[in-house]
Design a protein around this nucleic acid. Structure first.
Lengths: 193, 193, 193, 193
DNA sequence: CATGAATGAGTGTTCATTCAT
DNA sequence: TATGAATGAACACTCATTCAT
C-alpha cells in the first residue's frame, strides 16, 4: 500500500487538471500535454494511469458522478417521508452544484453532449441515481407524486438546477437562499399531485 | 465585368454539414476538411463564405437560433391571455425540439458549453427570447405567474425540454402527445401562482 | 474609346503594388491577392497582364532596372573625361538610390538573392550598365583607373551605395551632402591609380 | 526518471538543412516539411528544438554570425598596429566568405532583406563587429584612417566582399589570390588618409 | 477585358500517443 | 515507475492559379 499511495496522488492530480482544463478551455483545448503540465508530470506518465484520453475522461466522469451521489444521498434513509426525503435529496444536489461548481459543470457538460463520454460510462453513471428513482416510485404508490415517467420527474426537478448553475457561473444570476427556496417550490409543484 | 456569384446553396450546405458533424461527432471531431467534404466543396471554399471556423459556428448558432424563435413565436400575438400565450409558445418550442431535432440539439450544445460560441454571439442569441420575457412580466403583473426571476421561470418551463429531447434522441424515451401534455402541466404548475 | 484595350494604368498599378509589398512585407508575404487588392483589381486580372507571379517579378525587375539606368546615364556623353564621366554617373546612381528608395531597395533585393528573379532576367538587366563598363575600359587604357576586373570596380564604387541606402532606410544613418562627397572620394580612391 | 536527451546532432542537422534550403530555394521555398525531411526528422520534431520558423531562422542567423566573428577576429589582438590589424581582420573575413560560402551567403541574405530576421536578432548580431569598430576608432585617433562614419568605412571595406562572393558563387568571377590582394588594396585605399 | 468564386496543393503548427532510457 | 524526446497524422488556414460568366 505504501507504494500505491504516491501513485494515487499523481492520478488525482491528473483528474483535477483534466477537470479544470475541460471546464475552462473546452474539450478541444485540453490537450494531454497541458493536462500533464498542470498535473506536474510528463505526458507519458498519463498513460501509466489511464489507457488513453477517452479513458481519462470516462474515469473522471465516473468518479465525479460517484462523488456527486455521495453528496446527493447524504443523511438520506428510506424511513424518511417521501416529501422530506425528496427535499433532502434536492437540497443536497443543489448544494453540490453550488459548492462543487467545477465538478457540477463538468458532469453537466458530459450529460449534455453525447460525444463526450462513451455509452458504457454513461450507463454506469446512471446507476448512481437509483435511490431517487426508488423514492419517486414510493411517492407515486403513496399518491403523492404524479404518475409520470421518471424522465419527466428528473427533467422538472433536478435538471433545472444545471441551468441555474450555468447562469450563476456566468455571473448573470446569483442563487441566494431565497431563490433556492423558490426553486425548490417550483420543483415540488411540478411533480406533486 | 461579369463573374460567378456566391451561391447561397453552398453556404447552406456548409451550415448543414457543420450542424450535422458537430452534433454527431462533437465539436472536437468536426474538422473543416470533413465539413467541406460533406458539403461537397473544397476546404478552401469555406473561407469564401466564413471568416474562420469560429465564425462558421457563430453564424450557424445565430441563424439556427433565429429559426428557432421564428417557430417559437409563431401565431403569437400580445392580445392572447397570459396562459393561452404561454401554452402556445411552450408548445411551439416543444414542437421545434421534436421536429428539428438536429437544430435543437446543436443549440442546446452551444448554450450549455461556454467554450463553443463567443460571448457576442451568445448575447445576440439571447435577444430572440424577448417576447417570452415580456409575456412573463405581464403574467406577473396580472398575478398569474409567480414573482420570481425569469431565470427560474426559464429553468422550470423551457429548459426541461432540452433534457427530454436529449433522452428522446438517445431512444431512451419517447415524447408522445400524452407525455407532452404531462410535461406542459408540470411546466405550468411550477410557475403559476 | 471604341474598343477596350489592356489598360496600361492597371499594369502600372500592379507593378507599383508589387514593388511596395515585396519591399515592405517580403516576397513571402506578398501574395497575389494582396497585390491585386492594393492595385484595385481582381486577382484574376493580374493574369491578363502577366503570365504568373515569377513573370510579374521579372518584368518589375527589368523595368525598374531600365528606369534606373535612364537615371544613371542622364547627361552622360562619351566626350566627358573619364573622371568627370565617372563622377557624373556615380552621383546619378547615388541620387537614384536616395530619391527612388523603393525602386532601389527592390533592385538591391533582386541582385542579392539569387532565387528572386530568373537567370534570363538577370542577364538582361546587366546589359544596362554597359556604358559604365565602357567608361572604365577607357579609363584603364588612359592609365587613370586600376587595371582590375570590372567586378572589383563595381564592388568598390557602386555596390557600397546599396549598403548606405539600406542603412538610411533603417534610419540608422543619414546620407547628407557631405557624407555623399566622402563616399564619392572613397569610391574614387579605391579605383584610381 | 530516465529519458531520452535532446540530441545536439538533430539540432545541428536542422540548422544545416535550413541554411542549405534558404540559400538554394529562397526563404519562400524552404518549408518546414522540406527542412525536416532534409534533416532526417519528422516535421513535429523541429518544434522540440525551435519555437517556430522565425525562431529557427533567428537562431541560425545568430549562430552563424557568431561563427563568422570567431573567424573574423582570429589571431587579432589590440597590440597589432592599425594597418596590420585591419589587414588581418579583412583577410579573415574574406577567407570566411570564400571558404564558408553557404554561411556567408545566408548572412548576406539576412543582412540585406529586412523581413528575414527580427529586429532583436539583428541588433544582437551587430555586436559581433565591435572589435573592428574599435580598431577603426583607434586608426582615426592615430590619423591613419579617414575621419568618416563607420557605416562608410564598412560600406567600402567589408561590404564589397559580399558582392564578390555572390559573383563567385554564380561562377561569373573567380576570386584568386591576386584578385584578393587587389581587393584588399582597394579597400585600404578607400579609407586610409 | 475583367471579375469574384472556386480549388488542389500546400503552409506552419499541434496533437495523442509511443519510444528509449 | 517515470520521463522528455520523437513522431505520423491531422489541423485550421492560405496560396497561385483557373473557371464561368
Amino acid at each position: 500500500m505504501a507504494k500505491r499511495t504516491k501513485s494515487n496522488e499523481k492520478r488525482i492530480a491528473l483528474l483535477n487538471a483534466t477537470l479544470h482544463l475541460v471546464n475552462n478551455n473546452g474539450f478541444h483545448d485540453a490537450p494531454m500535454s497541458k493536462i500533464a503540465k498542470m498535473a506536474g508530470v510528463s505526458p507519458a506518465t498519463i498513460y501509466i494511469y489511464f489507457e488513453n484520453k477517452q479513458d481519462l475522461i470516462n474515469k473522471l466522469y465516473l468518479e465525479t458522478k460517484a462523488s456527486f451521489s455521495d453528496d446527493a444521498f447524504k443523511d438520506y434513509t428510506e424511513d424518511l417521508s417521501v416529501q422530506k426525503g425528496f427535499e433532502l435529496i434536492w437540497r443536497n444536489i443543489a448544494n453540490f452544484k453550488i459548492n462543487q461548481v467545477e465538478e457540477a459543470a463538468f458532469l453537466s457538460q458530459c450529460d449534455n453532449i453525447n460525444t463526450m463520454i462513451d455509452e458504457a460510462s454513461r450507463q454506469e453513471g446512471l446507476k448512481n441515481l437509483q435511490p431517487l428513482l426508488d423514492l419517486w416510485e414510493r411517492g407515486q404508490k403513496e399518491g403523492i407524486i404524479k404518475n409520470i415517467s421518471p424522465y419527466l420527474l428528473y427533467a422538472y426537478t433536478i435538471y433545472p438546477l444545471a441551468f441555474l448553475m450555468t447562469m450563476q457561473k456566468r455571473s448573470d444570476f446569483e442563487l441566494t437562499e431565497d431563490k433556492l427556496t423558490e426553486a425548490y417550490n417550483s420543483a415540488w409543484n411540478s411533480i406533486k399531485i
